[in-house]
Each structure stands twice: as structure tokens, then as C-alpha cells.
């Protein structure tokens, strides 16, 4: 049977690839360096886990999925995952991404979800936006692994409460562990801490990088108090902390998949260079312990 060998939660801020390019010339905003260092640490942890495939959960930011047909949870099972959108490349100079999709695992997760009570939507034709391409390029720059994209609605209300994201994360893990090929599977989720992109508070992170909400939620995370994390993860609570803060719901997927295990890597990066971001990682031993 398959095994979850690495679980990672990271941001996808499009200024970070720009910062990485500038850092190579010694010109990056110093506030971006801790985020880059965290990506590098988690890149190494992912490599050490020797995964065969990466299940990647991210948002679409209303790039292609719109209010005419909005699924909270969707498994992508096209032959390849390509992205990002041309407008994103134009704005931020993002690198192209073109990876094979592990169709067998994608279909297994989809069908296993139905058996477990998670009615995923699915798509055979999609584009992966920057929330997929940026984490993958930081965490696996070799681009040598197949992926299974899972699109989660993080910004078009109504959205389910955080506990449902956790339940879906747990269901994805259960599906991985019933995968018949014995694959070593990594799962990467990407979301936000407090975030106001597009809202009146968009510049607040430049003067107050760590909000009261960030501090409170980070305390719950450090205590591994998943019940409290989920209790404070409804749309209304998150939206009140910034119109983009519901992006935190992606991390709820990871807490569900962790099955109670505490992360082996946890760092909150709150500087004026980009909105606050959380880097979480669970290694194989921690994940094993979480199931004991």
C-alpha cells in the first residue's frame, strides 16, 4: 500500500520567485530571505523523503473556476499539469511548469473519496496557477516527479468550515494509504496566514507584518491544538482577519492529513517583504507517530 512520507505547508506569494532571483545576485529584500531559507529547508526534507509522487493542493484564485460552477474540492486528472496563466507570467515573470499527472493515483483518490464520504469534483482539463507552480518549483526544482493537483476553493464564499478541509485532508491520506502500488507519496498544501490582497488592508503587512490574528493562530499551531485551529477556521472568522485570510483553510487540509501528529518543522515568517507566511513540515517519522 502507499504511504504518506512527507507533508508540507508553504506560501505561494508570487514575489518570492522574484526575491529568489534577486537573492542570487545578493540584491533581495532582506525580509524575503527567511522565507527563501524555509523553502530551502523543506526542499531538503522533501528530497530526504524520496517521494514517487506529489499530491499538491492549492487554490485557483478565480483564474479559471468561477461562480458559474464552483467546487470546494476538485481532483485534477488530466495527463499533464501545466501552468501558470499567461497573465501571471506577465505580471511576475514566473517560470513555466509542465509535469505529468499520476492519473492512477488521482483516480484512486477521487474514488476513495467517494467511498469515504468526500464527493470530490474532478477535471480533465485545467491550468495550474501560481499557487501550484511556485511551491513545486521551490520544493522540487528538478521537476522530475509526477503530481496530483487538488484544487480547493479558498476565496469564493460560501466555503465549507475548516473542519471539512481537515476531513478532506484525512481522506486524501487514507486514499494514499490504500493505494495498491506501494507508492511513497508527498503532500504539499499552500495557503496564507493573514492576507488582504485586493482589499483595503493590502498594504498593512508592510507596516504590521504580524497581526493579532497571526499571533493567535500561530500559538494554536505551535501547541498542535488542532481542535482550536479548526474552531477558529470558518469563513467569517478568517475573512474578518483580511479578505485573503481564508487561504489559511489550505493548512487545515494538512492538519487533517497529519492525523494529530505535530509538525517537525514550523516557522512563521512575518516581515515587511511579503504577507505573513507559514512553513510547516511533517517528516515520515512524525507522520508514523501521528497514526499510532
Amino acid at each position: 500500500m502507499g504511504k504518506l512520507v512527507s507533508l508540507i505547508g508553504v506560501p505561494h506569494d508570487p514575489t518570492l520567485p522574484i526575491a529568489a532571483r534577486l537573492a542570487a545576485e545578493g540584491k533581495a529584500n532582506p525580509g524575503a530571505l527567511p522565507a527563501l531559507a524555509n523553502f530551502e529547508t523543506l526542499r531538503k526534507r522533501l528530497a530526504e523523503a524520496r517521494p514517487d509522487v506529489i499530491v499538491m493542493a492549492g487554490s485557483d484564485h478565480l483564474n479559471q473556476w468561477f461562480f458559474n460552477n464552483m467546487a470546494p474540492f476538485m481532483v485534477g486528472k488530466a495527463a499533464r499539469m501545466q501552468g501558470p496563466f499567461p497573465s501571471e507570467t506577465k505580471s511576475w515573470g514566473l517560470e513555466p511548469c509542465d509535469l505529468p499527472v499520476d492519473g492512477a493515483l488521482a483516480r484512486h483518490i477521487l474514488k476513495s473519496g467517494y467511498e469515504q464520504g468526500v464527493d470530490f469534483a474532478f477535471s480533465d482539463e485545467f491550468t495550474a496557477d501560481h499557487s501550484f507552480t511556485i511551491p513545486l518549483q521551490f520544493l522540487r526544482p528538478e521537476g522530475d516527479l509526477p503530481v496530483v493537483p487538488v484544487f480547493v476553493n479558498l476565496l469564493a464564499p460560501p466555503v465549507p468550515p475548516g473542519r471539512r478541509y481537515a476531513a478532506v485532508g484525512a481522506a486524501i491520506r487514507a486514499a494514499i494509504e490504500s493505494e495498491p502500488g506501494g507508492k511513497r507519496v508527498a503532500m504539499v498544501v499552500t495557503g496564507h496566514m493573514s492576507n488582504s490582497v485586493g482589499g483595503p488592508g493590502m498594504l498593512r503587512s508592510m507596516s504590521e507584518p504580524e497581526s493579532d490574528w497571526d499571533r493567535a493562530m500561530w500559538r494554536r499551531i505551535r501547541a498542535n491544538d488542532v481542535a482550536a485551529v479548526l474552531e477558529h477556521s470558518t469563513w467569517d472568522q478568517l475573512y474578518a482577519a483580511g479578505n485573503g485570510t481564508p487561504g489559511f483553510l489550505a493548512y487545515c487540509l494538512a492538519f487533517g492529513a497529519a492525523g494529530g501528529a505535530a509538525p517537525s518543522h514550523a516557522e512563521l515568517v512575518a516581515t515587511t517583504a511579503q504577507p505573513a507566511c507559514a512553513f510547516l513540515g511533517w517528516d515520515e517519522a512524525r507522520l508514523d507517530g501521528g497514526r499510532a
Partner: peptide, 28 residues
Amino acid sequence: HPFLLYSFAIALAGGWSFQLMHDYVARL
């Protein structure tokens, strides 16, 4: 939706820039 409004503002301005972002926030 704030994200759509921001996309609209970026498109109206012909692309994203720091100035655009500051002007946008000033309007709100």
C-alpha cells in the same frame, strides 16, 4: 469580490506595479 476588483484594476492599468497597488489601496 476584492480579488476580482484588484484584477480589474490591474488590467485597467495595463499591468501590475507597486504604484498601481498603492493607488488602488488609496481608492479603498
